[in-house]
Design a protein around this nucleic acid. Structure first.
Lengths: 212, 212
DNA sequence: TGTACATCAGTGAACGCGCGTTCACTGATGTAC
DNA sequence: TGTACATCAGTGAACGCGCGTTCACTGATGTAC
């Protein structure tokens, strides 16, 4: 790549990092201003337009990065589960690790998922849907392997993701001690859903058997 | 009350209604301006200060109203459950009814629960905690009555409220048809959690028995 | 009931501020020959 | 390799805008006697 192109990439990166740095418990993406982000990145406000047509475009680029992080997280969790077993424990531990390492990126996903801009919500929903689909596949495969099929794996996956993301949002601003408590709670919640779904599948099977 | 005090109350009400009216899928409380709310309420911007010291104070008054709605909802649900049985079905139906009737009030609660202002989050969390506590009591009583105790009723209540509020947020901008689907999904999710918690309690009992 | 004074919800002009966006520019980097 | 021209990331001045907040005011309502 030419030196010019490399420099351009570096500045683009600086803008995205500047925006991420300014996200926190009290600053949503919607409260950032173009001038502020440019200032933080060390460039003139007008230079911003060499990289993005508007602030939201930068936001969507960050959402993309969040999606990448989610997919990486899933791959990592699978690898670890294959080694350790203990799917729920391992998944929660992996999730929390990623959450901590990419706090502001997840903050963006978790916050803007129900945020102001339709465009943001749609983009994030797509990433989450992908995540849910993958999880549903895993749950299904896992259940069949163990001879404990699940009723409605997709719904189970949705419920689990809802619970995970919600505790995630709380964990973002929690102390390490609080995080441990949240992890324990989350694991129990997930186990409840999983066991409930197994019982419901068993019940449905029994009813089916009676009919035949 | 004096005519003057009555007029003042009416204006205050008009300000709160104006703010509520401007909340929607694309407008969070944080994006409202004092001037806009005053304009919509039909008074001069400066008159706003006769009623609230700042915009957030109005927002917190709305959160209070949301809390009242939540408590009313709970009372209503209990009454109906006493009549119909079918706790989950009835609760979900009642919740969705309230959600629809007070769409923008719930929008405020659901959105600002994870929103920008610490003050808002704290106030809303307090309302939700109260809600969770009541639900946990109900679950506990209900479980004992039926001879099916629950493991950790408080945690079950938290998981349920998380699921309910999340589907609620989605239902806010859903068509009636989509709402029916969301209701069905939510009921199934709640059933999974409940059954799972019952199974876990039974399992714990068995282990306890073995030890003795 | 009538009068004189106090209260106070609502007003309009004015302020300074940070914002997003435009524009014509500069000067280093890239390219064609 | 050297030269002449093209590209384009970054700039600084300038714009109009809506914002929150202050201030001194008005005039209807309330109160004391």
């Amino acid at each position: 790549m030419s030196a010019r192109a490399e420099q351009k990439m570096r500045t683009r990166r600086a803008l995205m990092d500047a925006a991420l740095r300014q996200l926190s418990a009290d600053r949503g993406f919607g409260s950032l201003s173009l001038r502020e982000v440019a200032r933080e990145a060390g460039i003139a406000p007008t230079s911003f337009y060499r990289h993005f047509a508007e602030l939201d475009e930068l936001g969507l680029a960050l959402v993309d990065e969040g999606g990448v992080a989610l997919r990486q997280l899933m791959r990592q969790a699978r690898k670890r589960i294959a080694r350790n077993g203990s799917a729920i424990n391992t998944s929660v531990e992996t999730f929390m690790e990623y959450l901590t390492d990419n706090a502001n990126l997840f903050r963006l996903l978790l916050r803007e998922r129900t945020g102001l801009s339709k465009q943001f919500r749609t983009a994030i929903q797509a990433e989450i849907d992908h995540f849910v689909t993958e999880l549903a596949d895993d749950l299904n495969r896992f259940g069949e392997d163990q001879g404990k099929p699940l009723s409605d794996p997709r719904l189970v996956a949705e419920a689990m993701v809802t619970l995970v993301f919600n505790q995630g949002a709380e964990a973002l601003d929690a102390t390490p001690k609080e995080k441990e408590i949240l992890k324990a709670k989350l694991k129990t919640e997930l186990r409840m859903v999983l066991i409930g779904a197994q019982m419901m599948a068993r019940e449905a099977q029994r009813q089916q058997a009676r009919k035949n």
